[in-house]
Write a protein that binds this DNA or RNA. Structure first.
Length: 300
DNA sequence: AACATTTGCAACCGCATCTAA
DNA sequence: TTTAGATGCGGTTGCAAATGT
């Protein structure tokens, strides 16, 4: 161990920053097909202009199908507090005790909520000892500035992965200055679509006249992306077609099938098109998926 | 309404550790 | 056993959204 550390990649040749929908789909597609035996080689094999570490992080923290989403339950928070009290900042160890949660997520929750809450509770305890006033700040996420209570539903907020309009993302904003879309309409729910599409049972290309249902944000129409299977020899072609369907759903193409930026302008990204011309440059560049993973995107 | 500040979290960085040749 | 590359991990940062003034 302890060799001189070689750069993990040539930073000038990789993309950084938020992942686009197409990048996510391409990563998902590749891992579904091939797994991830070698993260370093994966970006090139998958046609992604990303560092292997970035791909790994994206998959582990965001795209893995077994991830839980939504707020932490009081039980989970209690587990984190107890384990942190025992082993400290061993986030991966703590995450191992919380199935579906990532070390990064736990770290963020600790730093943004739990640590502050413990400090507040400690302060309250001391003040209570002074004036014997009841501690009214026992609810979760009750910080000094607000009292956003979290859902305590028994199914750990898994409802957000289904078609619950009340829990759909209220807004997802991108970076208009960089060409990212300004807003994703809340009724698109791309977050739901991806995994439901991946897990569903009807080949979209055999059922191509059912586009509306296939890419339906609610995923109520069962679909099967056979493009994601090893056995499909035309997988890449089918994937391209499927991505086009998805682009249509997202409004990334016009009626003629031309690729559009979300602002309606045509666009070309030569770097990306060099990899796979079938994939819309607009799609690769201008549509970051915003998953409903954070309380701010959830309904009241 | 406009601006400033705070919050929350995805993503990045770099060191530690693991693994295979 | 040594070495180099790959992966894991924890700290930190950047930025959009939320909130306050």
């Amino acid at each position: 161990m302890g060799r001189g550390r070689a750069p993990c990649c040539d930073k000038s040749k990789v993309r950084t920053g938020p992942w686009s929908t197409a990048e996510d789909l391409r990563l998902i597609n590749f891992i579904q097909k091939h797994g991830h035996p070698n993260w370093r080689a994966l970006p090139k094999q998958a046609g992604l202009l990303r560092c292997g570490k970035s791909c790994r992080l994206r998959w582990i923290n965001y795209l893995r199908p077994d991830l839980k989403r939504g707020n932490f339950t009081p039980q989970e928070e209690e587990t984190i507090i107890q384990l942190h009290n025992t082993i400290g900042n061993k986030w991966s160890k703590i995450a191992a005790s919380l199935p579906g949660r990532t070390d990064n997520e736990i770290k963020n929750v600790w730093n943004t909520h739990l640590k502050k809450r413990l400090i507040t509770d400690e302060a309250n305890k001391h003040s209570t000892m002074d004036d014997h006033s009841p501690n009214t700040c026992s609810s979760n996420y009750c910080t000094s500035s607000s009292s956003t209570s979290i859902s305590t539903s028994g199914d750990d907020n898994l409802e957000i992965l289904h078609c619950d309009p009340d829990n759909s993302p209220k807004q997802a904003s991108g970076y208009s200055d960089n060409g990212y879309i300004e807003n994703i309409p809340s009724d698109i729910n791309i977050d739901i679509g991806v995994w439901e599409l991946l897990n569903s049972n009807i080949n979209p290309l055999q059922e191509s006249n059912k586009t509306d249902q296939q890419i339906n944000s609610c995923g109520e129409q069962d679909t099967n992306l056979s493009v994601f299977t090893e056995n499909n020899v035309d997988g890449e072609i089918e994937l391209s077609k499927w991505l086009r369907l998805l682009e249509n759903e997202l409004g990334l193409t016009n009626d003629d099938g031309d690729h559009l930026r979300m602002d309606g302008q045509h666009t070309v990204d030569q770097q990306i098109t060099n990899f796979e011309p079938e994939i819309s440059p607009a799609f690769l560049d201008y549509s970051p998926i915003i998953w409903p993973s954070s309380p701010q995107y959830l309904g009241d």
